[in-house]
């Protein structure tokens, strides 16, 4: 487990967050995923769900049930905090389950890559170089959020990092692949958004009626290839 003990604070009166840090790091993210997985396997009375993010895990619970089930504690928050602290003693960052490597084809045609030229120009390289650098890396899915199935992945090579657009688009097409700072992500649905769009995929990131509605899971590794 991480040497520095994580910060635990209430996220309202029905949830608490265990914060391992405030930086994008594979190690911290593995801790977050492992802690979430621990509570999926080891439910407690009143547990609702566990949600991993970049470097934190949030546990949602029903305070009424927790208070009744853990009368020794002054508050439900104290009880769940105690459970989280005990869990932190027992998990390791390797408890993140099976790692999957997923390949995702991308189109880089001009209609799909709305901001490719901008990303190239702001990094003083050519569009082809941006694509080449982008495809060279394997990315980790740190978390899903923002939209159903929207994946926050990282980290892109520093030669192509680009801040978000000053003015977000009101409509980003479904399947768009974007860059925001050192993050990359795929718009699972058509949505407003401010990421720099460099390509588009046909792979359905979100299929509401599938057994697993989202194509990617936190902890997955993703390789992008050029779509033929």
């Amino acid at each position: 487990m991480a040497e520095k003990s994580p910060r635990i604070f209430p996220l309202g009166d029905s949830a608490l967050t265990v914060e391992f840090g405030n930086v994008i790091s594979e190690e911290l993210n593995k801790n977050a995923i492992a802690l979430a997985a621990h509570f999926d396997k080891n439910n407690f009375p009143g547990f609702i769900e566990s949600v991993p993010a970049y470097a934190s895990t949030t546990l949602f619970y029903d305070p009424f049930v927790v208070r009744k089930s853990f009368p020794k504690f002054f508050t439900a928050f104290d009880a769940v905090k105690h459970l989280a602290e005990a869990a932190l003693e027992n998990i390791t960052a390797d408890d993140t389950g099976t790692m999957r490597l997923v390949e995702i084809p991308i189109y880089f045609d001009s209609e799909s890559s709305l901001d490719l030229e901008f990303v190239a120009a702001s990094n003083n390289i050519s569009s082809d170089e941006v694509i080449e650098i982008f495809l060279a890396k394997t990315y980790r899915v740190y978390m899903l959020g923002f939209l159903p199935g929207f994946s926050y992945m990282g980290e892109v090579d520093e030669r192509i990092t680009t801040p978000r657009r000053d003015t977000p688009r009101t409509v980003v097409p479904k399947g768009s692949v974007g860059i925001a700072g050192s993050q990359t992500g795929i718009y699972s649905l058509e949505s407003p958004g401010g990421w720099q769009i460099i390509g588009r995929t046909d792979v359905e990131m979100f299929s509401p009626n599938a057994k697993e509605p989202c194509y990617l899971r936190p902890g997955d590794e993703v390789r992008f290839v050029t779509a033929k």
Partner: peptide, 10 residues
């Protein structure tokens, strides 16, 4: 702040 979980009422 790094993206983190939010809740109804935050």
């Amino acid at each position: 702040l790094l993206s983190s979980v939010a809740s109804f009422g935050t």
